[in-house]
Design a protein around this nucleic acid. Sequence first.
DNA 1: ATCCTGTTCAAACGTTCGTTTGAATCATAC
DNA 2: GTATGATTCAAACGAACGTTTGAACAGGAT
Lengths: 230, 230
Amino acid sequence: MSEATAKQGPDTRARILNAAESLFMTHGFEATSMRMITGQAEVNLAAVNYHFGSKDALIQEVFRRRLTELNRDRLGALEAEESLANGAPLKPSKIVAAFFGVSLKMAADTEHGGATFMRLLGRTYTEPNEFVRQFLAEEYAEVVQRFMNALYRALPDVPREEILWRFHFMMGAMSYAIAGTDALKLFAGDFDDEDPTRLMPRLMSFLLGGLRAPLPEEVIESRAIRRDAA
Amino acid sequence: MSEATAKQGPDTRARILNAAESLFMTHGFEATSMRMITGQAEVNLAAVNYHFGSKDALIQEVFRRRLTELNRDRLGALEAEESLANGAPLKPSKIVAAFFGVSLKMAADTEHGGATFMRLLGRTYTEPNEFVRQFLAEEYAEVVQRFMNALYRALPDVPREEILWRFHFMMGAMSYAIAGTDALKLFAGDFDDEDPTRLMPRLMSFLLGGLRAPLPEEVIESRAIRRDAA
DNA sequence: ATCCTGTTCAAACGTTCGTTTGAATCATAC
DNA sequence: GTATGATTCAAACGAACGTTTGAACAGGAT
């Protein structure tokens, strides 16, 4: 063979990744067996270990494939705003829109499995599995750092710790929004699924409202004291 | 034996429930084996099946034990506010504080395992396991209905669908806030764990900011149109 | 002392898991 | 054609899983 990959009909590797992605979302990592994956992908049981080495390595590859693209798009959106701003601090709404807009865009892509992946990702932030968490942390490190710095510049009067927390809250709201309607139906059985494109403005309003909310009294007080001391 | 329960040293049932709760949080349901549970609880392997019937039934009991108390407290807090209000609609902040305040209070109780449970619960809203979701839905139905109705009364001008979404977002933010610092460290390695009692005011500011945020333009427009038609 | 009932215990059950193996199959290079 | 290296395949591996079993043990009532 010439090099790296290739052969057989509709590429075995991709078939496995797609089947795994979808099954992981439906059943979770542990509850998804190799036999379920290879069955749905219509490949031989041994194919996973041949192409990826192990089940754990397959899980990593499922995330790597998508996260690379997702985080590249997020950084791209941020940099586009930054070059528009010409060195001035960005508006918080632009920063939030860059990060979460890209996420929701992938979540809306039902054609190429983006929606499936984002729901899987939302679940995985709280995943107990140690090495999955470790891997996510590494993949996210740079992007989060960049966005946090943009927010620090945009909100110089808000304590950094407070911004960090609120970013955390925003991630939670988004994850639920995407992981989704399932959980919503959990609250209201009569809930209509309706047009998912309306999610973006809804979520954005909520996130910005939360981000710009008045600081809790404790924080205001402690800052006032610190200012007095200075 | 007289009736229901009892015998042996430090109650076998409770030992199993505590061990299971803690292990489920650390490893997830599927990755936690009966042998791990009975090992940590220092009881015989067969004790789980004897006392609970099956692993699935044990999972249910772990949740039932805590959720019954949690939802009773939530309803209690809501009713206390309602009786204070004397029939007038409650302020949204009071409603939100009743629901999420009780949650955070349990999350702050590290003495009796409340913290462990709340982190487990946060993870479980997005749990793939079908019957766990089904069970959660049943346990939550009444409480959520009551709180939603209170919010409908408190915010008569906001479309009910919008309130439902925002409640959903709030649940997400809270879950992340509790499930927690783990995920936060995922974003910022240098993050200090610090005083968890400060979480409550932080989260409450964010939630209320989000809940009271201006409606997205789409919604405002569609309401204006509807009003014109009327 | 005897029986009864609730509980514990060690051992085993059958099933399913992730992984490994070695032969079969295929496309290309010579 | 024949050799070569990549891929597929059916079958098996040992380990771990949730559950069941039947005997052992406990305390209270008769």
